[in-house]
Design a protein around this nucleic acid. Structure first.
Lengths: 201, 201
DNA sequence: ACCTGAACACCGTTCAAGT
DNA sequence: ACCTGAACACCGTTCAAGT
């Protein structure tokens, strides 16, 4: 194995992979371009070729986070596709799992100071939202959600999962309770939404 | 007005007030102990007398955030105490308002990397949660929430407000839509919870 | 196109010394 | 008890220069 001439086109990926690890183990504040460069065996100016500044690296991390989470949500829904309510629960648990394992990354993805996000990041974020929309849309086909309110229900369901994730990640709610509350929320939404559609007929 | 000898016991408050302003206008990353010291007209080592390190300042800010938010929630509930559903909506809007005006502060309050938070911070966080619990508890008295599930409903309601706040602060959901979704969520919870209690009889 | 290495301004933190 | 000011290690960012 070569001692030095590692990177020829792969430095970007190497930096992102290591950054994701640091983010997970020590948080955003511990993320330093110079340290990443040191660990990759390149000079401190090298990352500049791939990330214009620290914010660009963080945006790239958030983008990968959105893509991975969308994939995990779709995967969870597909594995439990027999019973709709169960597939919905699987998605909720996938969301919570992501939040527990990568809480700093999730924070990054929904950071309030999202000033002028690059187009690719917006696209990835919409990819996650699209995945959730598709899953909720399947509920219309399954007859458990009324079509006219599906857009709002999608946002509400997402928001509930996001909020629970925040509380669990912040250790204000136990992981087991958080998991049970995901199920409660889904049951509540199923009851509330169908009650509304019945009151319409 | 004296040019220099400002602070004799008030430096701590001056630093916190200015920090809150910087947090609101430029985000956490722009928060620097040295800059705060400069603006307050003291040496860069002076803050050390009141905050052992940067994290201690951030914790103090979060603590003030929890206290203020709890007060605003109680205030909103009291102003609309005639109709219970309306007081619930007022609370939700108060939560969202806080999130929009002080998104960076809310992030700080529910930061995932809440390593060993000081007791006073935990107490303040529980103060907010207590305020929300009281408001939800009034719903039991009003007969709209079943008593046996009030604890879980409280967390779910909080999580939904928190999640919506995150989405609105991150500009993934419009402020007006976020406000309308708060009302939708409350309506859903009221329907779902009462449907459940009816199914028990 | 990608990386090096010096340079600059800015930090957080520590600590002996002052009042 | 509170604040000063020097010192240290570490950053992000820029940029001319190399390959």
């Amino acid at each position: 194995m070569p001692e030095r001439p590692f990177h020829h086109g792969s430095l970007r990926t190497v930096l992102l992979d290591e950054a994701e690890k640091v983010l997970r183990e020590r948080g955003v504040d511990a993320l330093s371009l110079r340290e990443l460069a040191r660990d990759a065996g390149v000079s401190h100016g090298a990352p500049r070729s791939h990330f214009i500044d620290r914010k660009a690296l963080l945006d790239a991390l958030a983008e990968r986070g959105f893509n991975r989470m969308a994939a995990e949500m779709r995967g969870a829904a597909d594995r439990e596709s027999s019973d709709y309510a169960q597939s919905l629960r699987a998605c909720g648990h996938a969301y919570l799992n992501f939040a527990v394992k990568d809480s700093a990354l999730l924070d990054l993805m929904f950071a309030a100071k999202m000033d002028d996000p690059p187009d690719s990041l917006i696209a990835s974020a919409e990819g996650l939202f699209g995945a959730i929309s598709d899953i909720m849309g399947a509920g219309v086909a399954a007859g458990v959600f009324p079509e006219q309110s599906i857009e709002r229900l999608t946002i509400l369901m997402s928001a509930t999962m996001q909020g629970l994730s925040t509380f669990v990640a912040a250790r204000r709610v136990d992981t087991a309770l958080g998991s049970a509350l995901i199920d409660d929320a889904i049951a509540l939404f199923l009851r509330g939404a169908s009650a509304k559609s019945e009151s319409h007929t």
